[in-house]
Simulated scan of single mutants.
Amino acid sequence: MRSSLPSRLIATGFIAALLLTGCSAKDSNNAEAQPSETSSSAAASADATASSTSASSEDSDSAEASSSATALPTLANGQEVTLTDTEHTDFNAGKYVPATAQHPALNVPEPVMPEVAKEQTFEGAKAFLEYWVEAKNYNIETGKVSPVKELVTPNWPEEREMYEAIDQEYKADGWVEGSLAKLEIPDEDFNVVYEGLYDVIVYHTENPGKLYDKNGKVKEEIPAFNTSHQPTVITLKFENGRWAVDGSSGIQGVDYEN
């Protein structure tokens, strides 16, 4: 994969309890109670109707919420990906779910370049490199070549070709588990090679991973990169108000075999 290569209001109608005293009072009260009972019955009916409407509305809302839940992706063979309970909860909440042997990474956030990464300063170069690595990992987990391809100049064709190769694997419904990059920048300055070009010492590592085909079978084992944690040099180019990665090289005197 390298260059070496997803209430209810219970109808509580109030029943009027009339205390009756004497026959004439009873007759009188009965005459008066009739409209009261009718009114009470009407109120109870209205409450029941409102309750039914409320319940219907709640059912409708529930159905709408259920239908708006993000559907799980399927593999090329039509099989729905398998998630653990925790993964399913995170997925429905829109949270990032790392790739596994059962499914590709899900809800992968697209990286956003910080404003400082546009400055022609060491802090700007450092922020840019950190963004570049986030974009590399975004490519690894989604196959998308944008934005990472635009961050590398044509002077490093092997790197750009790797992004395209990963994209092709995802277009064929494959995916990558692991193989994510990490970048540490120990220095507080860069070396100016010549106008517009800058060398930055970094520790660039990648964990091991696996490439799966469309049916979830391991297609390739991807080895870790720079397990000895040796420093390398990343050459940056600043042109037309923006940074770009121009290449990577070893440091003279460093043994990269250990």
Rank of each mutant, 00 (worst) to 15 (best):
S249W: 00
H229D: 11
N29Y: 15
P109W: 01
T70Y: 00
K210A: 07
A43M: 10
Q102K: 12
V97W: 02
A11G: 15
Q230S: 13
P114C: 02
I185R: 01
T142E: 09
T86H: 04
V81D: 01
G174M: 05
S248D: 05
R160V: 14
N30E: 08
T100R: 02
I185C: 03
L9P: 12
M113A: 10
W132V: 15
S4G: 12
H204Q: 04
S60E: 08
D255W: 13
S228P: 07
E220F: 08
K171E: 14
T12V: 15
G22R: 13
E87V: 02
F225A: 12
S36F: 09
A135W: 00
E58C: 03
A165K: 13
T12S: 11
N29L: 15
E115I: 07
Y170I: 11
L106Q: 05
I185T: 03
I15Y: 05
C23K: 15
K136Y: 01
Q252I: 14
T38N: 06
T74P: 04
F190M: 11
A93N: 03
D59E: 07
Y194P: 00
E220V: 10
K210Y: 02
S67T: 04
A224G: 12
F238V: 03
S28A: 08
D246K: 06
A17T: 11
N30K: 01
T70L: 03
N215I: 05
T21Y: 15
N137T: 07
E221I: 11
E150L: 05
Y212P: 00
V218Q: 10
V148E: 10
N77S: 05
V200M: 00
F238G: 08
V133N: 00
H204F: 14
D59G: 11
A44R: 12
P109D: 06
W175D: 00
E123M: 05
E37K: 12
L236H: 02
D255L: 09
E119F: 02
A63H: 04
D199F: 10
E221F: 04
A50F: 12
Q120E: 13
A25F: 13
F238Q: 02
S36M: 13
S39Q: 07
Q79D: 07
R160S: 09
N92C: 01
F91W: 03
D255C: 07
P223I: 05
Y138E: 01
P73R: 08
S57R: 04
P73S: 09
N240P: 04
A76Y: 12
D90Q: 03
K136G: 01
D90M: 00
D167G: 13
A105S: 15
N77Y: 06
E161Q: 14
S45F: 11
S56D: 13
T82G: 08
E115L: 07
R2S: 12
E87G: 02
K136T: 01
A165C: 04
N29T: 05
T49G: 14
Y256R: 08
V133L: 06
E32H: 11
A244G: 10
V193E: 15
F225H: 10
W243G: 10
T205L: 13
A65F: 08
P73K: 06
S28N: 13
S45V: 14
